[in-house]
């Protein structure tokens, strides 16, 4: 429309509210609900110390007499009541879930960020440079894809555990977990970015930048990178859900977050010991939280992918 050039540029917020993406968001109930659930859970995790009724890791606040209190029931000895009950140590399950979700989310977000940065750099390099660089990076990616990612993560975890001194092991566990999940996840970022880079590289605006004399690094970062980021955003959202599950799986298997810093996966592992003796709530509530978190984030990612790519509809 030629008359668009006459109108004043609206503010950034106005433009965001007027964008097709926001419109697609407002008209999709799935997106609205999943966004609401994920934001609620994330806020609850971030502000856990304010939301939680007790600090489950402060031994002085624990009372062993409170152990195995079922949800919404007065404890026979102390008369305390807990919304989601307590575990064998008398810790409030609701509070441990909030703190556990913190660890789960932190590991998930950090692992995805690590995978994203690594994958985007390697994918950009492979796509733009081509030739041998491309061959080496992409073959490495192919080889890695032949191993199940959980296996890669366990391998990294095992090696890291072997080389860290015993006294640092618990402190390092979280970082090793991030490294392990991130390393098993970079391939999909690299593949998508490489493909998009190949498309963008052949466009004339890249030729124009080369003609100006811009060096390859500037072309990659300033010109190509912003144009390949929207699929990356989508993968990152979906990966976040997968990374949270991967972390839970590793922790469930006992190779993840230590019991001193339990994540949702650790809580589920602890809880499953009590499932058959009737204390179902110790397993049930952490598992539901994990489900809600992973599902809502995943649905957000799915919706984002459809909204950014109208051709899929």
């Amino acid at each position: 429309m030629s008359d668009q050039t006459m109108t004043k540029s609206p503010s950034r917020l106005r433009r965001a509210l007027d964008s097709d993406l926001y419109y697609a968001f407002r008209t999709s109930p799935v997106a609205m609900i999943s966004a609401f659930v994920s934001i609620l859970l994330i806020l609850a995790a971030v502000f856990a110390p304010l939301v939680a009724t007790t600090n489950p890791f402060d031994p002085s606040s624990l009372n062993l007499m409170n152990g195995f209190t079922p949800p919404m029931t007065d404890n026979a000895f102390t008369g305390d009541s807990f919304i989601m009950g307590t575990d064998d140590q008398g810790r409030d399950v609701f509070s441990t879930i909030l703190y556990g979700m913190r660890i789960s989310l932190f590991v998930g977000v950090a692992a995805v960020l690590f995978a994203l940065v690594l994958g985007v750099i390697l994918g950009l390099l492979a796509g733009y440079a081509g030739g041998w660089t491309d061959t080496i990076i992409m073959r490495a990616a192919d080889v890695q894809l032949t191993f199940p990612s959980i296996l890669v993560a366990m391998l990294v975890f095992g090696i890291a555990k072997g080389i860290t001194p015993v006294e640092y092991r618990d402190q390092m566990a979280i970082w090793v977990l991030i490294l392990a999940i991130g390393l098993s996840d970079w391939v999909q970022f690299a593949r998508v970015v490489r493909g998009a880079t190949l498309v963008e590289k052949s466009k004339d605006y890249v030729a124009a930048a080369r003609l100006i004399g811009r060096p390859p690094l500037a072309i990659m970062l300033r010109h190509i990178l912003p144009n390949v980021l929207s699929p990356v955003l989508v993968i990152a959202t979906i990966s976040l859900a997968l990374a949270i599950i991967a972390e839970a799986t590793l922790s469930f298997l006992g190779v993840g977050a230590p019991p001193t810093q339990p994540s949702l996966g650790t809580l589920i592992r602890i809880g499953q010991q009590f499932l058959f003796s009737g204390e179902w709530w110790i397993l049930f509530f952490p598992a539901c939280t994990l489900l809600a978190l992973a599902l809502s984030v995943n649905l957000m990612g799915d919706w984002l992918r459809d909204a950014l790519n109208p051709r899929l509809k």
């Binding site: 605006y205 124009a208 100006i212 912003p226």
Partner: peptide, 27 residues
């Protein structure tokens, strides 16, 4: 150089001002 396809010869993620400024800044 002036290219054939005006839809691919300008970086869609850069503002017009930045596009025209790029050669001035680079050189």
């Amino acid at each position: 150089m002036i290219f054939q396809d005006p839809f691919s010869s300008l970086n869609p993620r850069m503002k017009v001002g930045d596009i025209v400024a790029e050669p001035l800044l680079h050189h």
